[in-house]
Design a protein around this nucleic acid. Structure first.
Ligand SMILES: [Zn+2]
Ligand SMILES: [Zn+2]
Ligand SMILES: [Zn+2]
Ligand SMILES: [Zn+2]
Lengths: 161, 161
DNA sequence: TCTTGTCCTGTTACAAGGTAACAGTTAAGC
DNA sequence: GCTTAACTGTTACCTTGTAACAGGACAAGA
């Protein structure tokens, strides 16, 4: 598992993206999922950016590939990727980020830089403390938990707000 | 402090809403904030609903009061309420909910029923375990954390999905 | 009292995010 | 090969959110 703060540090990103893409291919083969060209291309775009991209930013990049492309193209690919744990939606940004360690659908926690939109994914301790207890008390059945910390990454601190 | 799961249980809601509104007035007086009629009305609408409302749902209710009302009216009031800890934005729903225990701006954790949109607010243990540590390791400065658990409230369990 | 700046409101017009629905195409399974 | 299910292309639309500007309320000071 890659270090969670990788996104915020210099690294051989070409290799990082290639290996995540390869992991995705392997996972799809194993689980009999069809990582079609459209889906693979969107994942690739997310991996190259290594930060949160809005659906319409992804659309732009798809269009740069040549063909036109309408919003459903991007959303369908993103739904597939998110449903299968290859990408995550960042609620706070209405944006999407590639998963660095693809697995079956999984929740995660995120550190989101509000200046540069880079996102670090951190494995999430299930039923994090307090909240799990509060839910149990209330008889509430948790299905999915969103944990997103907003702030400034190391590179973006020490400048203007 | 009201019990966190209050939203999911039967309670004297007229009293619950009135007391929250009163608390808001007190807090605004103490902090020299202007809880103008427009703002108070939006807070009242949120308190009456006791669930998450979209900005455009709030707009509808404002219009039922007589005057027309354009989106910025709702958003301005909601921004004021959120900035001052009188309401919270639920990212996952693009919706807003009144705070049951208004204080200075504060983060909270939420239990959100995906069937009925009722929302329970739970006090959040600051720098929740793991994530705080991961942030410190990465040199990431957390400013605000979103914690939203999605699931089914007691009333909505045991039926269709 | 008048003046001035600040904050709040009303309104227009639009940007950004997201989806329903349908027709056509590809690929899997028999 | 034929059938069926899954994927793609496209149109048209809905929902959410904001920039920008003009006007009004109000307090503080001259
Ligand atoms: Zn990388
Ligand atoms: Zn940054
Ligand atoms: Zn109540
Ligand atoms: Zn419910």
């Amino acid at each position: 598992m890659p270090s969670p703060d990788l996104a915020f540090r210099a690294h051989d990103h070409a290799r990082c993206a290639a290996s995540a893409l390869h992991a995705a291919q392997t996972l799809c083969a194993a689980r009999n999922l069809r990582l079609t060209p459209a889906r693979a291309r969107v994942l690739e775009i997310l991996l190259e950016a290594h930060r949160a991209l809005g659906a319409y930013e992804i659309l732009e990049r798809l269009r740069e590939d040549g063909q036109p492309a309408q919003p459903p193209v991007a959303y369908r690919a993103l739904n597939f990727l998110c449903e299968n744990g290859l990408a995550h939606r960042i609620e706070r940004l209405n944006a999407f980020v590639a998963c660095v360690d693809p697995q079956a659908e999984h929740d995660a926690a995120f550190l989101i830089c509000r200046r540069c939109d880079r996102v670090a994914e951190s494995p999430r301790d299930q039923d994090a403390g307090h909240l799990g207890a509060a839910a149990a008390d209330a008889g509430f059945a948790i299905e999915r938990t969103v944990v997103e910390a907003l702030g400034l990454c190391p590179d973006c601190q020490g400048g203007q707000p």
